[in-house]
């Protein structure tokens, strides 16, 4: 028994089909999360990322395996695990302040009205929405709605925060701003974050580790890739960091060329990989950067 903050072992999800043969989305998924860690999970559509996240949230029951957080098995949703849904899931009849208060009141039912309001307002100002407290979600842009949703999740101060592709529907500019806000709040609150994304650059910017999943059916977490780039990272300068493109190419190469291979899961844990171990230890970083400049940052997505 390890002493990891969150331990996932032997997780599987099987859907019965009409023909009688079962459809296995993923199988034998094992990983640990450490306290205060920011982990992104990346993989092609249909590999079951969202189902894994919902299982961690306790919204979905696994076919096999277990999720253990702080030594206790996850048996249902809990305030210890906050979720930011892809489509924001704000309650449209409440103002943005009331939406955050909704979470805060559920978390601390005996707090006074003023304390709830003060706490919620503080988290909304953290995401830069102090001017839109009384506006309804329908009067907010997509980016602002997602900020309210993030504020709601952080305001309840869960031990684990689960984000299901939170920036998927946002334009690149808005996405960058909210990514920075997310990192800012995360570094202030020291919560553990588990996030789904499709965006390799986003994953590198935010994560300590990146889980890459092989394709479904029978998907699994193939590798746990360490992001060995020092913090604080800046969106506009991170690509100048030694090894950025090397890491990026490694991830894209996996998604494009290797994700269809069946990973070797015999050890029960995803393979720990650090593509930058050579750079960070001794070898000259300058040459690596020169080599990597040949690769256009966005040329590899095709």
């Amino acid at each position: 028994m390890s002493n990891a903050f969150l331990e996932v072992s032997g997780l599987a999800k099987v859907y019965p089909t009409k023909e009688g043969n079962d459809f296995t989305v993923y199988d034998n998924v094992n990983f640990n999360l450490n306290k205060g860690e920011f982990v992104c999970i990346i993989g092609h559509s249909g590999c079951g990322k969202s189902t894994i996240l919902n299982t961690l949230a306790g919204l979905d029951d696994p076919t096999a395996g277990a999720v253990v957080m702080n030594g206790k098995e996850v048996k249902g949703p809990s305030l210890e695990r906050g979720v930011v849904f892809q489509n924001y899931s704000l309650l449209p009849w409440l103002s943005s302040l009331s939406n955050v208060e909704f979470g805060v009141k559920a978390r601390w039912p005996d707090w006074s009205k003023n304390k709830v309001r003060e706490h919620s307002t503080r988290f909304l100002s953290m995401v830069g929405l102090e001017h839109a407290l009384q506006r309804k979600p329908s009067e907010l842009s997509g980016g602002m709605r997602q900020r309210v949703s993030i504020a709601r999740a952080f305001a309840t101060q869960p031990e684990l925060l689960l984000l299901d592709e939170p920036f998927g529907a946002l334009d690149a500019l808005t996405r960058g701003v909210i990514q920075e806000e997310l990192v800012k709040i995360w570094s202030e609150t020291q919560q553990t974050v588990f996030m789904i994304t499709h965006d390799v650059d986003e994953a590198i910017l935010l994560s300590d580790r990146i889980f890459v999943m092989s394709n479904g059916p029978n998907a699994a977490i193939a590798e746990s890739v360490k992001v060995d780039i020092p913090r604080p990272r800046q969106r506009n300068t991170i690509f100048q960091q030694p090894g950025y493109y090397q890491l990026r190419n490694y991830l894209v190469d996996f998604l494009v060329n290797r994700s269809a291979e069946k990973p070797d899961n015999s050890s029960g844990k995803p393979k720990e990989v650090n593509p930058l171990s050579a750079i960070t230890s001794s070898s000259a970083p300058a040459t690596t950067i020169d080599n990597d400049r040949n690769a256009h940052p966005y040329a590899v997505n095709q």
């Binding site: 949230a57 306790g58 919204l59 249902g76 949703p77 809990s78 899931s89 309650l91 979470g103 309840t156």
Partner: peptide
């Protein structure tokens, strides 16, 4: 699901 994750 929002209600469920907030343990209502």
């Amino acid at each position: 699901n929002v209600a469920r994750t907030h343990e209502l």
